[in-house]
Computed example of a mutant assay.
Amino acid sequence: MATKKSSEKKSVQSADLPINKTYKLFINGAFPRTESGRYFQLDDADGNFMANICLSSRKDFRNSVVAARSAQQSWQDRAAFNKSQIVYRIAEMLDQKRDLFVNEMIQMGYSKSASDKEFTAAVDLVVYYAGWCDKYMQVFSNVNPVASSHFNFSVPEPTGIVATMASEKTALTGIIQAIIPPICGGNTVVVLSAEKYPATAISFAEVLATSDVPAGVVNILTGKRAELYSHFASHMDVNAVVIWDAEKADAKNVGALAADSVKRTHFYESKTPVVGNPDLIMNLQETKTTWHPIQNISGSKSGY
């Protein structure tokens, strides 16, 4: 009789019980649940339960902006080559998780061939921007001709905090386009993932968490655009708003709200295939012009 009970206990312990995942937010290098306690159910392409997804609130966005502001100056001050190393590290860590991302994309409706193609394009995109981190400044800076005895330089500097909404058209390249170009230019970001593809966004956050990216540089929210549009545009400590594939009415409202704090606003239409573009870095830069006096042969500084 004792043997039978032992056998039954063992069979219960070894049962293959499903573990339903809740994809949490990514704020300041950690994975908190939404402060609102709200979530929505994400179903796979066959209508079966896939995961629970946090429904981000205004407070989650504000917390993300605080984290981004705390990290912005130290990230901006890092050497360009170090930023390049970190972004390349993202590509390395992402490339090791091919099976995870391909399977997630298949669950969300991609074909096997389309998911493989999307993943390869995503890794290539990160590598592409890693190469620009320490080059865009040289390419886009200027030495300006002036009438006086001075050198006059114009150089790009980061805008600051970028609030961006990822494209709804792609699962992985969309979130990468929203994140990587701004941080290559020394900005910090708060990004809202695509409503249709939140799982890959948070899985990408798990890549970022192991890729030497400092806490607060990238903050990822999941939820609904309609709830967060106005907060992204009106927050007074956000320096730029970037919306991928915005509806015309939404773009108009964002522009009007952003005007109160003189934010930069950019509205992009995603294209297929997704290719890198250094303009996505430069559009989130400010131009700083510096004057430097030229020394003459005697060693004194020339005046105006």
Rank of each mutant, 00 (worst) to 15 (best):
T34N: 11
L192C: 09
S270G: 09
I90Q: 03
M50D: 09
E104A: 13
L17A: 13
V139D: 11
V254S: 05
M165D: 03
V275R: 01
V102P: 11
W244S: 05
L192Q: 06
F140W: 03
A67L: 04
A251D: 13
V254Y: 03
F26K: 05
K169R: 14
D124L: 14
L125I: 03
R33P: 01
F31L: 06
L172M: 12
G216W: 00
E286Q: 06
Y129F: 13
H231Y: 12
V190L: 12
F153P: 06
S56N: 15
S74D: 01
Y23G: 03
Y229A: 07
A199H: 03
V143Y: 02
P198A: 06
N63A: 08
G109W: 02
V189E: 00
T289A: 12
K112C: 13
R38E: 15
K24F: 15
N82E: 15
V241T: 00
T222K: 09
S302W: 11
T265P: 01
L42D: 10
L284S: 00
E227S: 07
V155K: 03
V275Y: 00
K271Y: 14
D260Y: 13
V66G: 04
I27L: 03
W291E: 14
P293R: 07
N296R: 14
V207D: 12
N52C: 10
N82D: 15
Y129G: 01
T120E: 08
V217W: 06
S113T: 12
P18T: 15
R33Q: 05
I243F: 12
V207K: 04
P181Q: 10
A67P: 05
Q96N: 06
T3M: 10
K248R: 07
K21T: 08
E269M: 11
A258L: 10
E206F: 02
V65T: 06
I297C: 08
H150C: 01
F232W: 12
S234I: 02
G276E: 06
I202M: 14
A68W: 00
G29S: 10
L257A: 06
E118W: 13
K10D: 15
V102I: 14
W132T: 04
I161T: 07
N82R: 14
W291I: 13
R225N: 08
K24W: 14
Y304T: 04
C54S: 15
R98W: 02
G255Q: 10
A68Q: 03
H266A: 06
A2P: 01
T210P: 02
K135G: 01
N283H: 07
V190F: 08
N28M: 12
D44S: 09
A68L: 03
T290V: 15
